[in-house]
């Protein structure tokens, strides 16, 4: 995967497959510690202890069509390459929390990528799911929630192309506001 937004796309698909109807993604930075934190929390079916213990192994998957699953191992490896880590907490019937960190200034840290495209497309494909995205740089924060957007829209579907474009632009501007100058790849 070329950037963090693609990993997010991949990991959020897991939450969707686990029948979540609310998925909260948080992207935050701690400049003093020089760390970028990302978490994905869902209310899906969760994993058993046994499955959780092995989930980082690429030869573990809940799929029955094939015996490999590379999403989580790839995400973990990308974090570890940049002195970060990946951890997963999960409880059957309650949901799963995936937390990832990267050392911001590390030469191998992946760029954030197009977070807006990831989210606008997830909304397009799964409008029935509540997506929340929180962005925080330690002093300012912005969040966007698809249920609030749908409330504003009333009977107009959130998948309306102009709405999707608005979501895309809103997130792009928010990322600039919050992480411009904080992460080198994002110009303020």
């Amino acid at each position: 995967m070329r950037d963090i937004s693609l990993h997010l796309m991949d990991i959020i698909q897991n939450s969707i497959t686990a029948n979540s109807n609310r998925i909260v993604t948080t992207i935050s930075t701690d400049n003093e510690k020089d760390f970028l934190y990302i978490s994905i929390k869902d209310n899906g079916k969760g994993m058993s202890k046994e499955f959780l213990e092995n989930v980082i192994d690429p030869f573990t998957t809940s799929r029955t069509t094939r015996k490999v699953g590379l999403g989580i191992p790839l995400f973990k490896e990308s974090a570890e390459r940049a002195e970060g880590f990946l951890s997963i907490e999960s409880e059957l019937g309650k949901g799963t929390l995936v937390s990832v960190s990267y050392k911001i200034s590390h030469i191998d840290r992946l760029p954030l990528g197009d977070i807006a495209q990831t989210f606008s497309q997830l909304v397009m494909a799964s409008p029935e799911i509540e997506f929340e995205l929180k962005m925080n740089n330690g002093s300012d924060s912005i969040q966007i929630n698809t249920v609030e957007i749908q409330d504003t829209l009333g009977e107009v579907p959130i998948t309306n192309f102009e709405v999707i474009e608005w979501i895309n632009n809103y997130i792009t501007e928010s990322i600039k506001c919050i992480f411009g100058g904080v992460l080198d790849e994002i110009l303020s």
């Binding site: 107009v156 709405v163 501007e173």
Partner: peptide, 14 residues
């Protein structure tokens, strides 16, 4: 900055 007001305008148009 984009605002929810714009969203309401998109709604009216749609």
């Amino acid at each position: 900055m984009k605002s929810l007001a714009e969203l309401a305008a998109i709604r009216e148009k749609a």
